[in-house]
Design a protein around this nucleic acid. Structure first.
Lengths: 252, 252
DNA sequence: ATACAGATTGACGTAACGTAAATGTCAATA
DNA sequence: TATTGACATTTACGTTACGTCAATCTGTAT
């Protein structure tokens, strides 16, 4: 005894809406067995089977186009496709983890310093963008618009005084130098490492109105989690970002 | 000395495309300082500041509409918004984790049993959908289309013989009963718990062509990760899904 | 004068449906 | 039999944050 289903029955049976079934028909993912003479869609057992498969792949997060290939092309390399999909999911998760870290840090900063003004809230993070721009476009933009333009703009972006700006540049250099020396010993509790962390703290306070150990550590985590930060530090010495983080964790 | 930027300059400076800036203008997220008489967009320092803020919130994963509120409404509760956002991110991550688990399990099943036919590949998972349907729509659908229709369809979906189908129904009952008894002791290594795991293994082999401890444990994880599974077991006894998982981990 | 870089405004495409709107079909009831 | 109400159909816009043409205008350098 074979059974046939109206679109509504199949929808209830499978847990999707009728709109979804019509859409799957439209994109040739799941065609009905036949149509009644009044134009109603009729599905059979085979279609139910197919729909089950489609939905199961859908739960894995595959796109409908990918699913179409899987169920249409019998010699399709499903295992490979799933492994690729796995990689994509891992990347997505890494991105979300990064966001989560940043959100947490931002909330902490909000809790720690209510007196911050709105436009000051992200000073600590802002330089990240600037660094990125310097790295990626610095040379071109300097050639095109001249040195003063970009330096001016950077200062403006930071909203900081010329003195502080210069001071921070010196601090940055010192941090890098100290880290280089400390990394020779490989010891994160080394005196040079401690000095570097101290300088880093001072550097931080120029951006961040309220200093807290948590914020400092959070920023350290960011250095490792965010490839742009990592690249910035590692360009001076491989592994420097990681070393700085460990040093911060060991000394604050 | 104040600086003005063309759309291109600002784009390079901030790392976005000119299209993005035009779009932000269009949706009133970031308006240019002014237009030249030939219609060119000109941005000033303030706009650069705003853009920086926008991009930083964007990196946290917030939607442009939400960002608009944050930077427009000065008395907007940013902390609360970020906490809500954090919840959303956590949910997203949980979904991805679930997908990852399922993908892993599916790949394992592909590796372990090449002889599986295409339409048999998801038998082990398929019953999940069926259970869901039974739970959510079972009563309505029975009232509407009669008992035989849904039972028939279930059997068809499973592609299993009547004997195996009935056998499995009995097994399911036994598992539940054994778990209830075992849960009184609270000991997952209890003899009743062991029996339940044994029955569960037998039940599993009816769906899954090739048995492996990993697959069994993977399914156990799914029971806890997937709320529908959890609901199915917990309807008989609070905490049963968790107990079953622990029992499986303790006994296989 | 001409070429070329860079600006403008449309407008379509994306992924997987949700959500009307306007209208036709079927079974049951007054 | 006429009406009602549930269910079906197609058409088409909305969603999100831009990417990518296309057609056209502006500004500067040669």
């Amino acid at each position: 005894m074979k059974i046939e289903y109206t679109i509504q029955q199949l929808a209830i049976l499978s847990g999707v809406t009728t709109r979804t079934l019509r859409y799957y028909d439209q994109i040739n993912l799941l065609k009905p067995l036949r149509f009644t003479n009044s134009g109603y869609r009729i599905y059979g057992d085979y279609e139910v089977q197919l729909l089950q498969q489609i939905l199961l792949y859908r739960e894995l997060g595959l796109k409908l186009e990918e699913i179409k290939q899987i169920i249409n092309e019998s010699n399709f390399d499903i295992k490979n496709a799933l492994q690729e999909h796995q990689k994509k999911l891992l990347k997505e998760r890494a991105i979300i983890d990064k966001m989560l870290l940043n959100v947490k840090k931002t909330i902490q900063s909000l809790e720690g310093a209510y007196e911050m003004k709105d436009h000051e809230r992200f000073e600590g993070l802002k330089d990240k963008k600037i660094q990125e721009n310097e790295e990626n476009y610095g040379n071109e933009i300097r050639g095109k618009y001249g040195n003063d333009v970009i330096d001016e703009s950077n200062k403006k972006l930071q909203g900081m005084s010329e003195e502080v700006f210069k001071e921070n540049q010196i601090l940055e250099k010192r941090i890098i130098d100290l880290l280089k020396e400390a990394m020779i010993t490989g010891d994160v509790t080394n005196i040079k490492a401690q000095e570097a962390v101290k300088c880093h703290k001072e550097w931080l306070t120029h951006y961040w109105p309220s200093y807290s150990k948590e914020a400092h550590k959070g920023l350290a985590d960011l250095y490792v989690a965010d490839e742009r930060f990592t690249a910035y530090y590692d360009q001076h010495q491989k592994g420097m970002a990681q070393f700085l983080r460990d040093a911060i964790y060991a000394n604050v």
